[in-house]
Simulated scan of single mutants.
Amino acid sequence: MRKHTDPAAVGTLLRHVLELLDRDVAKVYEEQGLPEYRPRFSPVVRVLLAEGPLPVRDLAAAVGVTHSAASQTAAQMARAGLVTHSSDPQDARRRLVELTSKAHAVLPQIQAEWDATAAAMTELDAELSMPLADLLTEVAHALHRRPFRERITDAGQHETTCPQGEAGA
């Protein structure tokens, strides 16, 4: 990888790291004969295993993504034959997302990959100054306490109120 030379491009670096991780996990699934399975499916599979069939709204909340993201992931999973949509017996207007027999059949392979990924993450964390998940959790909490937009706005106001050359001092 090229040296990351622009310290202001944190978003680009985060996306790059995610691409590296997701790409390699996807390659493992492909090598295991599961080319249609994507790393983004795993949180959905975990929730549906734990909770059973759920409406997309509840699935999104349980996974921690937007309704739109959960809906898109469920649609991709349906095209891969891993989930199906059925009517909610308590409210026929709602559709439930549930794992298919195909998903249950490949679950041992998926769970083995989850275990291997956890072990690989432990190895990677040993090379870092702190575990990556801990750092990202810390960042998420800090941004929940004070959103980045506020930080940007405050920094912009500081820039406009300070004489040139004094900002950031």
Rank of each mutant, 00 (worst) to 15 (best):
A119F: 08
A119W: 07
A120W: 07
A120Q: 12
A120D: 06
A120H: 08
A120V: 06
M121N: 02
M121C: 07
M121Q: 04
M121D: 01
T122S: 15
T122N: 15
T122M: 15
E123F: 03
E123L: 04
L124K: 07
L124F: 10
L124T: 05
L124E: 03
L124Y: 03
D125C: 12
D125E: 08
D125F: 03
D125Q: 07
A126W: 04
A126Y: 04
A126D: 07
A126H: 08
E127V: 06
E127W: 06
E127N: 05
E127G: 09
E127P: 02
L128V: 00
L128P: 00
L128H: 01
L128E: 00
L128M: 02
L128C: 00
S129P: 03
S129M: 05
S129W: 03
S129N: 04
S129V: 02
S129H: 05
M130A: 01
P131F: 00
P131C: 00
P131K: 00
P131R: 00
L132S: 01
A133E: 14
A133S: 15
A133W: 12
A133M: 13
D134R: 09
D134W: 05
D134T: 13
D134Y: 03
L135R: 02
L135T: 01
L135W: 03
L135N: 01
L136S: 05
L136H: 11
L136Q: 07
T137R: 04
T137W: 02
E138Q: 05
E138N: 04
V139R: 06
V139E: 04
A140C: 09
A140K: 11
A140V: 13
H141N: 08
H141T: 10
H141Y: 05
A142K: 07
A142P: 01
A142D: 06
L143C: 10
L143Q: 10
L143P: 05
L143D: 08
L143F: 09
L143Y: 11
H144I: 12
R145T: 08
R145H: 06
R145Y: 03
R146E: 08
R146Y: 10
P147W: 08
P147L: 15
F148Q: 13
F148P: 03
F148G: 12
F148Y: 14
F148R: 14
R149I: 13
R149A: 15
E150V: 01
R151T: 11
R151A: 14
R151L: 14
R151S: 10
R151V: 11
R151N: 05
I152F: 14
I152E: 14
I152H: 10
I152S: 12
T153N: 11
T153A: 14
T153M: 12
T153S: 11
T153D: 15
D154V: 03
D154P: 00
D154S: 10
D154L: 13
D154M: 06
A155H: 01
A155D: 01
A155W: 02
G156C: 04
G156M: 04
G156V: 02
G156P: 00
Q157H: 14
Q157C: 10
Q157G: 13
Q157K: 13
Q157A: 11
H158E: 14
H158D: 13
H158T: 04
E159R: 11
E159T: 05
E159W: 08
E159F: 10
T160G: 03
T160D: 08
T160I: 08
T160E: 11
T161C: 11
C162I: 05
C162E: 12
C162K: 12
C162D: 09
C162S: 12
P163E: 13
P163R: 15
Q164Y: 10
